[in-house]
Nucleic acid binder design. Sequence first.
DNA 1: AGTGGCTCCTGGCGGC
DNA 2: TGCCGCCAGGAGCCAC
Length: 280
Amino acid sequence: MPELPEVETVRRRLDPQVVGRRVTDVCILDQTVSRQSQAEMRALLLGKVVRTIGRRGKWLLFDLGDVTMVVHLRMTGRLMFQPDAESAGRRPRFHISLDDRQRLYFYDTRRFGRLWALPSVDLPAFFADLGAEPLEDGFTVRHLRDSLAGRAAPLKSFLTDQRRLAGVGNIYADEALFRARLHPLRAAGGVGPREAQRLHAAVIETLRLGIEHEGSSVESFVDPAGERGRFQEILNVYQRTGEPCRVCGTPIQRIVVGGRGTHFCPRCQPRRAAKRHAGR
DNA sequence: AGTGGCTCCTGGCGGC
DNA sequence: TGCCGCCAGGAGCCAC
């Protein structure tokens, strides 16, 4: 399931092939992919040159100057110039033709992915409810502590709530909580200053590691060249139920939090905050 | 306002 | 062997 590292990997792969190219056609083959019609899309996109490909959280942003095309891969969306073995024979949900005769196809088995074309001036409003970008300077320990404060929601739900933090999904939330040694059911507001510092570092390190490994291919994620990521090879807890913790050997447990499968080490991530010695 | 629960969607898998 | 039902989850919507 594409989260920030997977979307960033797609962005980096597409960038050199798409930037500078002019959009010559847009075909919507599955109308449920967008609230906008093919005619609306064409009116906004045709003839425009892709300036950059950006990313905000899990959204990909094709900057066409006064217009931006926004794509969300959701669970199974793939943007590819050539169908790979899995996509072959399937109908893409939309495709974009470029002036170098390349065509970018959107394959999406579960059909959760979405496409928008909007005036670039409307981008701030479009992302008004989206939280901090965890790999940018604005995401500080202070910022994290402020947004954790007073919240009753479990840490797992907090991390995957896109209004709090942009780009973290089920895999990286579980992995970041393991790295921070925090139990997924701990209340966000109950996290102490030092724990918040650990969580801040863990989120950043986990996402960076994910990008370095070009994402996790646990579902069917592949980049636009059909290549799998490698982060799944170094997962500590996600989908390792019953397997020994890589740190202490305790079997990894699976629970459901907010309706989502959640994996953790019951020994490394105790339910109760470690007791402070009242010493002195 | 914040939180939790439901829904969408389909391939894959367990169970009988 | 075949088929039924369940599971996975990002985000939007709704209810409390």
